[in-house]
């Protein structure tokens, strides 16, 4: 199939970017979206132009590196799918495709489709852990965690930290990301001791890093390639209220 791409090009963080139009020809429907971009880049290099810079790594939907808004939807809008797992069979010959980076104040654009997601790191560093020491911990079976709790924690822990929740949120809030970690650790006995400090510190860090507030649009849940549910945000809210009393 042949496609028309409108790709966000921006030389550096301080530069003004704009959408550039490219034609790609002979795309196979078995190719992944990123392989289609690889093709585009090969053409650009051969034509003496600068290839499009984009983040990607594992190409199997788990590392969370890839980050593109495709036709107005983070990761392209296919259910539970990252850009790297999106295949060209979802598109038709002659389609026009708009490709933009994550946009949020907390995610400054570095080049083309690459953004700086360090703000997510800071949120995690502010409390996304249990303060256990290496060694000197109890036997794994000394703490019983019934299956429903373990499953709940696992549902939350599936977050890959890609930032699609932020990119899709009208407020650029990182609440889904933050809540996934808060909820995972709040439901587990190991995490309960620090639950109060954790929810306070992590939500505070989220705001300090320039993310917006959650106003319950739930766009994040739709965009999340791992299907993280907004019930974890509700859980975070509960945990926060508990921390106030």
């Amino acid at each position: 199939m042949n496609l028309t791409l409108h790709v966000w090009r921006q030389k550096g963080p301080q530069d003004k970017g704009k959408l550039e139009t490219y034609q790609v020809k002979g795309v196979s429907e078995d190719q992944s979206f990123l392989e289609m971009l690889d093709d585009l880049n090969e053409d650009l290099i051969k034509g003496g132009k600068d290839p499009v810079a984009f983040d990607h790594d594992c190409r199997e939907g788990i590392c969370g590196m890839c980050s593109q808004v495709i036709n107005g939807k983070a990761h392209g809008g296919q259910e539970r799918t990252t850009v790297c797992q999106l295949h060209m069979r979802s598109f038709n010959d002659g389609d026009e495709i708009f490709i933009e980076p994550w946009r949020a104040r907390a995610f400054p654009i570095q080049k083309d489709l690459i953004v700086d997601r360090n703000a997510l790191e800071v949120v995690m560093q502010s409390g996304g852990y249990t303060s256990c020491h290496t060694g000197g911990v109890a036997d794994g079976n000394a703490i019983l965690i019934p299956k429903p709790d373990a499953d709940y924690a696992m549902d939350a822990a599936e977050c890959i930290g890609c930032g699609a929740c932020v990119a899709s949120c009208p407020n650029s809030s990182a609440m889904l990301y933050t809540s996934a970690k808060v909820a995972q650790l709040a439901v587990l006995p190991q995490g309960k001791g620090e639950a109060k400090a954790r929810v306070k510190n992590m939500t505070e860090a989220m705001l300090d890093e320039g993310f917006g507030n959650c106003t319950n649009h739930y766009e994040c849940q739709e965009a999340c390639p791992k299907g993280i549910n907004v019930k974890f945000i509700a859980k975070l809210n509960r945990e926060y209220m508990k921390s106030m009393v």
């Binding site: 409108h6 966000w8 959408l19 808004v69 036709n71 107005g72 939807k73 809008g77 708009f98 933009e100 946009r103 949020a104 104040r105 907390a106 899709s168 949120c169 009208p170 407020n171 650029s172 809030s173 705001l207 320039g210 993310f211 917006g212 507030n213 106003t215 319950n216 649009h217 739930y218 766009e219 849940q221 739709e222 965009a223």
Partner: peptide, 29 residues
Amino acid sequence: QLSMENSTASPEAYAIKKRQITTFSAESM
């Protein structure tokens, strides 16, 4: 106050943005 913070947090608009689940209600609060 929250609305102002939120619009500061998302300063640049997408060329194309598709709403997936949010509603006119939510966006026009």
